[in-house]
């Protein structure tokens, strides 16, 4: 029995060391499902990794969750899209060095038949009113993500309490699963253009409203405050932030296209 425990201890130690040794030349970036599922990271990270030798480990969550993960100290860098939540994060002292990176826009996606007649208006708030007045369901992310936060702002502007409406379904899921649900239920949803463009299971869905200025969707990057969490990899994290806002980083973001269509537009001030 003693022998058995000795072997077990050795085995565990080896496993632990393997984990620690690997963690050294890498940073954890807590980011959003939209950047991961749109394929952007798959395009830009190899360029950064080849240049600096720093491995970037992306954990893709909703913006709210990504910020919470950073608040617990489980990430080095945060890369999200919900400006009010980002400003709060920085004001509370969790994050430093916040910078604009890029933007894309939200679109309202719905069935081709457009039962709720959203196509007739360019006004996003009016679009939400029409959806709530119709019979087709609206699938909400319901996961405190940046897209979810934007959607809730539009309902508020329209003076509608969506939860009081029977057609309002909260998926509690990422953008992709929510689009899967909208496709299956012939419903409407708010999506970021990046995920929409890379989404493959569209069935009868198409964009029914886009282009309203309020649909602007900016992304920001920031370092988790090393003063709060001394283990944060400050240097490597800053290298990533500097690179992604540098000319090279910005150009690689602009170069990412699906079917010739650009997904994200650089916006860093440098």
């Amino acid at each position: 029995m003693a022998n058995f425990f000795r072997q077990l201890t050795i085995f565990l130690c080896v496993m632990l060391m393997a984990g620690i040794a690997r963690a050294d030349e890498s940073i954890v970036v807590s980011s959003t499902t939209s950047t991961e599922q749109s394929g952007l990271f798959g395009h830009i990270l190899p360029i950064f990794e080849a240049k600096t030798g720093i491995k970037v480990k992306v954990v893709a969550l909703g913006t709210g969750q990504a910020l919470d993960t950073a608040r617990r100290g489980d990430a080095d860098v945060v890369f999200v899209h919900d400006r009010p939540a980002e400003d709060k994060f920085v004001a509370e002292g969790w994050g430093v060095e916040r910078r604009d990176v890029m933007y894309n826009d939200f679109v309202i996606v719905g069935p081709k038949t457009d039962a709720s007649k959203v196509k007739g208006t360019p006004d996003v708030v009016e679009g939400f009113r029409r959806i709530a007045a119709g019979s087709a369901p609206f699938i909400s992310r319901g996961d405190k993500s940046g897209t979810n936060a934007a959607e809730l702002r539009f309902w508020k502007e329209a003076n509608i309490d969506p939860k009081a409406w029977a057609g309002y379904k909260e998926a509690g899921a990422g953008m992709g699963p929510t689009l899967n649900m909208a496709a299956a239920m012939s419903g409407y949803t708010l999506a970021d253009r990046g995920t929409w463009l890379s989404f493959k299971n569209r069935q009868d869905l198409e964009i029914v409203l886009a282009g309203d200025k309020r649909l602007f969707n900016p992304y920001g990057v920031m370092l988790v405050n090393p003063a709060k969490y001394p283990h944060v990899k400050k240097e490597a994290g800053m290298k990533f932030i500097d690179w992604i806002t540098s000319r090279e980083g910005q150009e690689s973001i602009a170069a990412y296209k699906i079917n010739g269509e650009q997904l994200f537009f650089p916006s860093a001030k440098n």
């Binding site: 499902t33 491995k55 480990k57 953008m175 992709g176 496709a183 890379s198 493959k200 299971n201 569209r202």
Partner: peptide, 24 residues
């Protein structure tokens, strides 16, 4: 694990991700 590509992505989390992307 966080489903990190090339580091903690296993078969089941990859399936979850591809389903999310609509790549059935």
């Amino acid at each position: 694990g966080g489903n990190i590509e090339g580091y903690t992505r296993v078969m089941t989390t990859a399936i979850a991700l591809e389903t999310a992307k609509g790549d059935l």
